[in-house]
Every structure is written in structure tokens, then in C-alpha cells.
Design a protein around this nucleic acid. Structure first.
Lengths: 103, 103
DNA sequence: TCTTTATTTCGATTTTCATCGAACAAAGAG
DNA sequence: CTCTTTGTTCGATGAAAATCGAAATAAAGA
């Protein structure tokens, strides 16, 4: 079974996070997870108009940036925001995303 | 005389800002300006190991992202942070940069 | 006016990155 | 065991972005 790498937030740089979120697909993934309010979503539950190889790639970038956590559940994998940890490492960052998504 | 375009912060998206700051040269420029505490610096006062054409390009990206302001003074041009406006548009964002620069 | 200084613009090159299709892997259903 | 579902990996492709050198611009000072 595939295991994912989830870096400690202390190892993640702000630059990495910025890069991760400067792509429209990836910021949409994060926005969707914020709206999901803690619930986990499978990779195919996001409305991204790109192929599955690309989707897989974007999830990897977000994982490496410490933004999301992925768990395997049967044939699918469930993604959730690392909200509390992320907030501790980068205070108020997620709030900026929330504010931005409603304009 | 060259005139620069400084967009209203309301026209700037968070994605633009993230992209601007995900480059190491550009984040160094901003860090240097933060340390300068309001003072303006000429383009050649930043220790970037790239050619001057590239430097010019990076300043343009930062201007378009609403992060800096450029004024012509004689033969040089002086750059400063648009700190207050930026803080109003993206609260606490600059603090994240400050925290990140001291780790 | 000529020279120096500081930066921009242009065109070309290189690097990085998003994207895709095809092949592969793992788990569940029948 | 076979088929389906879900996602990953690989290799290739194209687009975007960083970089550079050279030429252009513009102001200041000799």
C-alpha cells in the first residue's frame, strides 16, 4: 500500500506554501477543503478540469507544503486540511484564503 | 521619464502576491525592504546574484503584485514597501514574512 | 556636449512546471 | 480469480517564467 509523506510543519517554508498556492487548481483544492469544514474528501470530489495524473501531482505538492493530509481508505484516498497545525505554524494564513475566496 | 504602474491594492489578488513571493530573489527584495523599516532603496542596493535585466524584471513583478512602490530620483529609482496599504488589504501577511525571515 | 550612472527593453536561451496518456498497483465486488 | 474503481508513476510535450547580454534611454555632472 502506498504511504504518503507528511512533513512536520516546522520543516515547511513559507516560500513552499506560497508556491503551492499560486496555482489555480491547488488553491481551488484548498478552498474546497476549507468549505468542507474538517470533512475529508476523495481526490475525485474536486471539480478540477485536468486529468487524474495532474490531480495526483497537485495533491502531492499540497502535501509537501504541509497543507493537506492524505489517508488511504479502501480504493480511494481521503484528503483533509491540516488546519490546526498549519494555523500554529503560519498564523492567520488560512484566514487570508477564506477572505480571498469570498470577494 | 519612465513612469511606473502601481495598481490599487483592491485589484491585486492573493494568488498574484503568492506567485510574486514564491521566487527567492523577490522574497529577498521584500525582506530587505522590511528590514529597511520604511526607507527607500535603489535597485542596486539589494544583494541578488543575477544580472540587472533580471533584477529589473523582479521589481516589475513585485510592483504589479502591489508590494512595492518605485519612484524615480535623478538617475536612480527608489523602492519602498507599500506596507500600510498592503496590511489593510492582506492583514498580517507582512508579519508572516517577518517571522519567516528570522528562523 | 560628452561621460557616467542606473535602469529598462529586446530577443534569445534555459529552466521550471503543468499537463497528458499509458502502464501499473491495490483494494473491493461479484 | 476477474473486473471495476481509484489513484500513482513514468516519460513526453508544451507553456510559462527566469535568466542573460547587448542595445537603448534618461538624468546628472564634468
Amino acid at each position: 500500500m502506498k504511504t504518503y509523506n507528511h512533513p512536520a510543519l516546522s520543516k515547511v517554508s513559507l516560500a513552499e506554501v506560497m508556491h503551492a498556492l499560486s496555482d489555480p487548481c491547488r488553491s481551488k483544492i484548498v478552498d474546497t477543503l476549507i468549505e468542507a469544514e474538517g470533512r475529508s474528501l476523495a481526490c475525485n470530489e474536486f471539480e478540477l478540469n485536468v486529468g487524474k495524473a495532474t490531480v495526483s501531482h497537485h495533491f502531492e505538492v499540497l502535501r509537501c507544503a504541509g497543507l493537506i493530509e492524505t489517508k488511504v481508505e479502501g480504493t480511494k484516498c481521503l484528503n483533509s486540511l491540516r488546519a490546526e497545525e498549519f494555523e500554529e505554524r503560519f498564523p492567520n494564513f488560512l484566514n487570508l484564503l477564506v477572505s480571498e475566496s469570498k470577494r
